[in-house]
Amino acid sequence: MAEESLQRLIDGCVQQERSSQKVLYELFYGFAMAICLRYAGNRYEAAEIMNEGFYKVFTNLQTYDSNRPFKPWIGRIMTNTAIDYYRANYKTNQFEELDETGSASDNASVVEKMAYQDLLALIQRLSPAYRTVFNLYAIDGFAHNEIAQILDISIGTSKSNLHKARQKLQEMIQKEAKLVNEKRNGI
């Protein structure tokens, strides 16, 4: 979307014009929802997080500095909202036990071939603790010390959660690979 028309849209939203707000919402829905989906356990939760995020966007739009890019600004709000949600709802939950993992050599190619929705489903099956750390580290690029501060955990816990998240993912990917093979071989 062109700079000026986006700016005009933002101006309309600052004026609390409902029509402008709806257009902005539809425009960034996919981007925002994609962030929330990988942090949440299911679509329902993701929608809640996303709407909470958009609410913050619309009520804080006048603090947005138009010299900065808009998409990352929204993205940060969504990520922060997702983290708040996790901390409010899941932090006290127990971590699940870990199965042993198998070989990981084929995993890369399996993932390459996976559809987004299927990969997303795997991510969502991780426990919230692992999923959140994995998102923050592997997708959003935070360092362990930053994650420790954001989630109020130790750096060690952050590293260990990341490790476990990856292990779990590999496990699931391998299961997925087996399923695909079985399908291919006509079961």
């Binding site: 996919g30 929802m33 994609a34 993932v111 929705q117 990969l119 997303l120 997708i139 990856r166 993912l169």
Partner: peptide, 18 residues
């Protein structure tokens, strides 16, 4: 693998239904 996952997840915005 992290990178592959990352790339795929970041493309997710194109696959989300409104």
């Amino acid at each position: 693998i992290d990178d592959i996952i990352r790339k795929k997840l970041l493309e997710g915005e194109n696959y989300v239904d409104y």
